[in-house]
């Protein structure tokens, strides 16, 4: 008897926890996104009044509508924020691939006894505070910052470049903080790669460059795709990087949601912004899962 009870406890406790603190909160967001803003506490109507029984439930359902979603399409701010988030996340992912692939490739080519140290070198920043890593670029990219003064000292520029508070700073921030997510999966696939295939290609007359593009890159594809999704998905809803490095002109959904909630105190609109962001995220998440499944099947 106790065995069965224990099994239900092991399943039931985490299950209930996640239902209460993950699923229910999300349903609340969905509900509030369909409500109207109001000058009350909490600042939205209708609120579900169960004490009035069936009548209360009916009134509650009748009060829900898609007004906030319509509002999102009428005000430029929102769709511009979604588009610019998609663009920033996509371009930053591409830049991260450009920076990350040579690092992963170099690690995979390095002598075997270097590899644990190199791997550790890539993982270490991942354990360091995200906030601090973003912050460290503020002092470098500022008008009077380290980078501008170094470039002026070298005589490369006469006037300080404006980098901080522009989208360029956001790209740098994303590439910097998400680099391990790109390097690690690519390294994992390159590490498992069968060297004899490259040797065969070269024996059959490929140059080094040709064998790289025709053999190494296609074989590393699962890792490249995984790395790109691992950067793109979190970058899309990023808040810290655009708010510290992007300045007021860089528009991203994470920041809009934050401001809608904390500054404008418009909870229904903030909730609608969140629901639409999730709908946008579903596509890359499903594609990512498919890629992972294919990679797993290929392994077996």
């Amino acid at each position: 008897m106790t065995g069965k009870l224990r099994r239900w406890l092991v399943i039931g406790v985490p299950y209930l926890w996640l239902l209460a603190l993950f699923l229910v909160p999300f349903l609340i967001v969905l509900k509030i996104s369909l409500s109207d803003p109001a000058l009350s506490i909490p600042p939205y109507t209708p609120t579900l009044d169960l004490s009035r029984g069936w009548e209360g439930v009916r009134e509650f359902v009748a009060g829900l509508d898609f007004e906030n979603y319509v509002f999102l399409t009428t005000d430029d701010l929102y769709w511009k924020a979604y588009l610019s988030s998609l663009w920033i996340a996509a371009f930053a992912t591409f830049l991260t691939l450009l920076v990350g692939f040579p690092i992963a490739y170099g690690m995979a080519c390095a002598p075997v006894h270097w590899r644990p140290t190199l791997l550790m070198g890539v993982i270490l920043p991942f354990w360091t505070s995200f906030l601090i890593r973003v912050y460290s670029w503020m002092g470098i990219l500022a008008q009077e910052g380290v980078l501008n003064r170094a470039l002026m000292w070298l005589g490369l520029i006469d006037e300080p470049l404006m980098i901080l508070n522009t989208p360029t700073a956001v790209y740098i921030g994303i590439v910097y903080t998400y680099l391990p997510f790109m390097v690690l999966p690519i390294y994992a696939t390159l590490d498992k790669l069968d060297v004899s295939l490259i040797e065969a290609a070269e024996d059959l007359g490929c140059s080094r460059t040709q064998s790289f593009w025709l053999v190494t890159v296609p074989l590393a594809r699962p890792g490249i795709i995984a790395g790109c999704f691992l950067v793109f998905i979190p970058a899309l809803g990023e808040f810290v990087i655009p708010s510290l490095l992007g300045g007021s002109r860089t528009l991203m959904v994470g920041k809009v949601l934050w401001e809608e909630f904390f500054s404008n105190r418009d909870w229904p609109v903030a909730s609608a912004v969140a629901v639409v962001l999730l709908l946008i995220l579903i596509v890359p998440i499903i594609l990512f899962q498919r890629n992972e499944q294919k990679a797993r099947e290929a392994e077996q």
Binding site: L18, L21, P25, I28, E238, F239, L257, A270, L281
Partner: peptide, 20 residues
């Protein structure tokens, strides 16, 4: 529910918990 929070943007997780 185990995998979703891993890909959920933090702003959404935070907002939903606060509303709860």
């Amino acid at each position: 529910m185990i995998y979703a929070p891993l890909v959920m943007p933090e702003v959404i997780t935070g907002l939903s918990l606060l509303l709860l």
